[in-house]
Amino acid sequence: MSEGTPLLRVVRGEPTAEELAALTVVVAALSQQGRPRKRPAPVGAWATSGDAHRRPLRPGPGGWRAAGRPA
């Protein structure tokens, strides 16, 4: 579409500026429906911030068991 070509053309009647604005919004919204939406990434246990707040790991006997437990 070139810059000189109008987006909409009125073929009958004399709409007001408000009516043309409303029609333009509806047409623009409908034209976006065919495009795929960007979905937010799912947040699960791997993305939680709880690990940033846990107690530091301590080496020693049973340390590997304590590493798997939440604080």
Rank of each mutant, 00 (worst) to 15 (best):
residue 1 M to H: 02
residue 1 M to K: 02
residue 1 M to F: 07
residue 3 E to F: 11
residue 4 G to T: 12
residue 4 G to F: 14
residue 5 T to N: 06
residue 5 T to G: 08
residue 7 L to N: 00
residue 8 L to G: 10
residue 8 L to M: 13
residue 9 R to I: 04
residue 10 V to D: 02
residue 11 V to P: 01
residue 11 V to W: 09
residue 12 R to G: 05
residue 13 G to A: 06
residue 13 G to S: 03
residue 13 G to P: 07
residue 14 E to D: 03
residue 15 P to V: 07
residue 16 T to N: 14
residue 17 A to H: 12
residue 18 E to W: 13
residue 18 E to F: 13
residue 20 L to V: 04
residue 21 A to P: 07
residue 22 A to V: 06
residue 23 L to D: 08
residue 24 T to N: 10
residue 24 T to A: 14
residue 25 V to S: 05
residue 25 V to T: 03
residue 26 V to W: 10
residue 26 V to P: 00
residue 27 V to T: 04
residue 27 V to N: 09
residue 28 A to S: 06
residue 29 A to P: 06
residue 29 A to W: 06
residue 30 L to N: 03
residue 31 S to D: 08
residue 31 S to W: 08
residue 32 Q to V: 07
residue 34 G to H: 03
residue 34 G to N: 05
residue 34 G to S: 09
residue 35 R to W: 12
residue 36 P to T: 01
residue 37 R to F: 15
residue 37 R to G: 15
residue 37 R to K: 10
residue 38 K to M: 13
residue 38 K to W: 08
residue 39 R to M: 11
residue 39 R to H: 14
residue 40 P to H: 03
residue 40 P to L: 09
residue 42 P to N: 06
residue 43 V to T: 01
residue 44 G to L: 12
residue 44 G to K: 08
residue 45 A to L: 03
residue 46 W to M: 01
residue 47 A to M: 14
residue 47 A to N: 12
residue 47 A to F: 13
residue 48 T to M: 14
residue 51 D to N: 05
residue 54 R to L: 02
residue 55 R to D: 01
residue 56 P to V: 09
residue 57 L to I: 11
residue 58 R to H: 09
residue 58 R to M: 11
residue 58 R to A: 04
residue 59 P to F: 04
residue 60 G to P: 01
residue 60 G to A: 05
residue 62 G to Y: 06
residue 63 G to H: 01
residue 63 G to P: 09
residue 63 G to F: 10
residue 64 W to K: 08
residue 65 R to G: 00
residue 65 R to V: 11
residue 67 A to F: 11
residue 70 P to K: 05
residue 70 P to N: 10
residue 71 A to C: 05
